Computed example of a mutant assay.
Amino acid sequence: MMTDNADERAQNIRMIRNSAAAITGSPGDLQRIRALRFTKPGTDDATWQKMADLGWIGILVDESSDGIGLGMSEFLGLAEELGRALVPEPLIAVASIAPDLPADLLADTLTGALVVMPIWQELVGDASLSAVGENATLTGSADRVPSALCAHGFVVQTNDGSAYIAAKDCTIEPSDTLDGGTYSKVTFNAVHARPLGDLSMARERATLATAAYLLGAADRAFEMTLDYVKMRHQFGRAIGSFQVIQHRAVDMKLQLEITRAVLADCVAKFETEESLDARRMSVSRAKARASDTAMLISRHSTQMHGAVAITDEHDIGLYTRKIATLFNQYGTASTHRRRYDALSRTVAAMPSDQVA
């Protein structure tokens, strides 16, 4: 029975990866990505609607709630394909929070009509969620909120609980990012807030999927680098024939495959562990590894391409800039290592019947 389930899951992952071609197009075709850079909001409504029509927004939502009821393994497979194509639409954040939305917000989110962006950044400026029920209001501000300009509403996590805020009631101040997207300062001035439940696991899902996105971007950058060193000639021969280049390429490939194996192990633990701390440990392990690997691939790709890598015309620069923008999202590698260490001590101190 377990073999049947594993085979079905593997088939689901292959199918979801193949479906990504409807959005990502052919490998190496980055015209859409280039056209969206440094525009506002930096995403495409038609592409978002395609994602909704394909069921991607509801990939983690139960079929009983009109989702497609797949798991984190399938979600990470999709996220990796999005990373390979540098897709800028905020599917990871929205799909991660979708399972925790109330029915009315979820229904519009799944159709693509409503884009609900989570804000997990710590609020500043006398931040508070006052009162409860229909009279609740939220005050404060959050910095470095990605994709805020395309949101119709925000789900905000505060020390007093979480709440849904309509975007029209907020002040949004965008700033350009290195990859051509935006981070925004979002300000709430005693705006009406709809209290929601605990959304902490949604952030864990988004963090794990972002690790897969980074892996996809790094893997594609590595492929482009291999192609380049095979065609770039110096001293009468392809630079890929030089031993130092070959050794570096082997190191890059090794790190990518280790990261892929780590992510596979971490998502398996995330889906099977009952202990929340053990699940969070798997997320931190995956994110720390993926962030480090993506930056290593980015640095080596730039060096092996040479000066052309820092020009805007060459596509490798799109990947290095995307990795530089995302590798610290949802926590730096060092932050996740510290969290892993702290959580591992907590889990080790638990009785064995509470860990499993």
Rank of each mutant, 00 (worst) to 15 (best):
I13A: 00
I13G: 02
A21Y: 09
S26K: 14
D29P: 05
D29N: 15
D29R: 09
Q31N: 15
R37A: 10
T39H: 09
D45V: 11
M51T: 04
D53M: 14
L54Y: 14
W56R: 04
W56T: 04
G58Q: 09
I59S: 01
S64W: 09
D66N: 13
G67V: 04
I68L: 10
I68M: 15
E74R: 09
A79K: 00
E80M: 14
E81R: 15
E81W: 04
P90H: 10
P90F: 06
V94M: 10
V94P: 01
P99M: 12
L101E: 02
A103N: 11
T109H: 07
T111S: 15
M117D: 10
G125C: 11
A127E: 06
V132C: 11
V132A: 15
E134N: 12
D143M: 12
V145A: 07
P146E: 05
F154R: 00
D160W: 00
I165L: 01
I165H: 01
A166V: 10
A167H: 02
D169Y: 02
C170H: 03
E173C: 09
P174E: 11
D176P: 11
T177A: 07
S184I: 02
V186S: 00
T187L: 04
F188C: 02
A190Q: 12
H192V: 06
A193F: 03
A193R: 00
D198G: 08
A202F: 08
A206D: 07
L208K: 04
A209L: 05
Y213F: 15
D219M: 06
R220L: 11
F222K: 00
E223T: 15
L226M: 12
Y228G: 00
V229R: 07
G236A: 07
G236C: 09
R237D: 03
G240I: 04
I245C: 00
H247K: 13
V250L: 13
I258Y: 13
L263V: 07
K269P: 03
A278Y: 01
S282N: 02
V283W: 02
D292H: 06
S301L: 11
V308R: 15
V308G: 11
D312R: 13
Y319L: 14
I323E: 05
T325V: 09
L326R: 03
T332E: 04
H336G: 08
L343R: 03
S344N: 07
A348W: 03
A349E: 14
Q354G: 02
